[in-house]
């Protein structure tokens, strides 16, 4: 009694972020906080203790005044595909907390399964994973703003960006009720994509030629972070500035970015 109804074509959800457009305003972070019940505490200025699934890094070309230039780089979880789904974090988790789905290409994290060994954090070169060092506390009354779509995490577990997977779940539900089996591009968008006022983030199925990301990722100026490590991330960046593209990976002195990285 196998049922084929649910078998949709495998997807690889991913992002293309236009760094020329990104102004570093941080709306993606704020939208992510609100969407995903991210806790906040009195002091969030120690960034190594501050949970931000989406973190906007500030890059500099390190040149002197007035040739200085800066660029912002939003960094969600890269949802690395690694080699056949063995992303840096997925294969190391001892309790099968984090997993890679070949249906969506999303790296999942189940907080209630996690016991907080933090091996995945050590494995992730993007620092996309965050640990709940504290019990999350909402000032009295503020727990009213919590969304039921995303579980509230407890102290002692690791969390990370889920590409707002719950939105995919919701969209699927809607499709089922309407007698469809699949969701459209615009039906499933992450909170950061939706919020980005510069429209710098594009989200969709990298495998689907009809989705915008499919074409955008083929931009000659597209690159991925730390591609050389073989993490095979699903977040692409585009920048017209060479120094920015070069900041996306490590290069030896004589190496030129375009010639090294294995593309797409």
């Amino acid at each position: 009694m196998k049922k084929a109804a649910d078998h949709t074509k495998p997807k690889r959800y991913g992002m293309v972020i236009d760094l020329d457009k990104c102004t570093g305003c941080g709306a993606c972070m704020v939208a992510c906080f609100a969407e995903n019940n991210i806790p906040f505490k009195k002091d969030e200025s120690e960034k190594l203790l501050s949970i931000t699934w989406m973190r906007v890094y500030k890059l500099s070309n390190k040149k002197k005044y007035p040739d200085t230039d800066i660029c912002y780089l939003p960094r969600p979880c890269m949802h690395c595909e690694g080699h056949e789904g063995h992303s840096p974090c997925v294969s190391v988790c001892p309790a099968t907390v984090t997993d890679y789905s070949t249906e969506t290409g999303i790296v999942s994290q189940i907080y209630t399964r996690c016991f907080g060994c933090r091996y995945c954090m050590a494995a992730c070169p993007y620092h996309a994973r965050y640990f709940n060092w504290w019990d999350p506390v909402w000032p009295k009354g503020m727990e009213k703003m919590l969304s039921p779509d995303v579980s509230v995490r407890m102290r002692g577990v690791v969390e990370k960006c889920s590409f707002c997977y719950h939105r995919y779940q919701r969209a699927k539900d809607k499709a089922y009720v309407e007698g469809r089996t699949d969701v459209e591009e615009e039906e499933y968008q992450t909170a950061c994509t939706q919020a980005c006022p510069a429209r710098a983030i594009t989200f969709g199925d990298l495998n689907n030629p009809k989705h915008k990301v499919y074409e955008l990722k083929q931009d000659p100026h597209a690159f991925r972070l730390l591609e050389r490590l073989g993490t095979n991330p699903k977040v692409y960046y585009v920048s017209s500035r060479e120094w920015v593209r070069k900041s996306g990976d490590n290069y030896l002195k004589h190496e030129e970015p375009g010639h090294i990285a294995t593309k797409h």
């Binding site: 063995h86 309790a95 099968t96 907080g116 091996y119």
Partner: peptide, 26 residues
Amino acid sequence: IDIGQPLRGWFIFWHANVHSMLTEVA
């Protein structure tokens, strides 16, 4: 002491991921 959720520590055995070096260690 090191793990964030000691009361769930046994998950490393129960829900073991055999690909993880840490599982083997445990």
